[in-house]
């Protein structure tokens, strides 16, 4: 009886020590789940989800404090990917957080711009260049289309322009074979 108890106790001590060592030695810095969620999010940094950026939203999802359907730029595909990753149910995009729009970039009307620098301060990715009383312009390649520069502009000179499809960005359509009714095909 005593022998059995001692063996079990010894086992518990050895395993406990091993686990304790592993917890210190193989400690994971940061939350790997947050990184994975962040990789799915579109990095628009628009704040439409109610969090001040994509990373905070990823952290909130990981903690279970936020739903997965609060990201309009990520769209339906983003929701599907998050649902797959987290094993949650797919939900339609939450209407209160916005609607999915075609990808656009900001365009500053340089005739109207007064050079107030307010949009520069609002841009989360530093994609607007300019200086006080100097004309501002958007670096198109770096603009995420977050629309955060629109509200601070005192003269409303910023508009969102949808990115047009070009020969380089054109995608092959999903193959659909048109079915012709037999009577018409014969005729």
């Amino acid at each position: 009886m005593l022998e059995a108890l001692l063996v079990m106790a010894l086992g518990a001590v050895v395993l406990g020590a091993a686990l304790g060592y592993a917890a210190v030695r193989f400690r994971v810095e940061g939350d790997p789940l947050v990184e994975k969620i962040d990789a799915i999010l579109p990095q628009t940094q628009c704040g439409q989800c109610g969090f001040p950026g994509c990373k905070p939203y990823a952290q909130a999802i990981a903690k279970g404090e936020a739903e997965i359907n609060q990201c309009p730029p990520g769209g339906e595909e983003g929701i599907h990917k998050l649902a797959d990753l987290l094993g949650r149910e797919v939900k339609p995009l939450s209407a209160e957080h916005g609607i999915e729009k075609p990808k656009s970039i900001a365009l500053i009307d340089e005739q109207t711009c007064i050079g107030c620098t307010l949009c520069i301060q609002a841009c989360p990715v530093d994609a607007i260049v300019g200086a006080a009383k100097q004309m501002h312009t958007v670096i198109a390649k770096q603009c995420t289309g977050c629309e955060l520069c629109l509200p601070p502009c005192p003269v409303d000179c910023i508009s969102m322009e949808p990115i047009p499809e070009s020969v380089e960005s054109w995608k092959w359509r999903y193959p659909v074979v048109r079915i012709v009714p037999a009577d018409k095909a014969a005729a």
Binding site: D38, L41, P42, Q43, T44, Q45, G53, C54, K55, P124, V125, D126, A127, Q142, T144, S169
Partner: peptide, 16 residues
Amino acid sequence: VEKDAADLARDRYEFR
């Protein structure tokens, strides 16, 4: 292309 753009945006946001 989208992923590259997202990575760029993430780097720039974190740097900001």
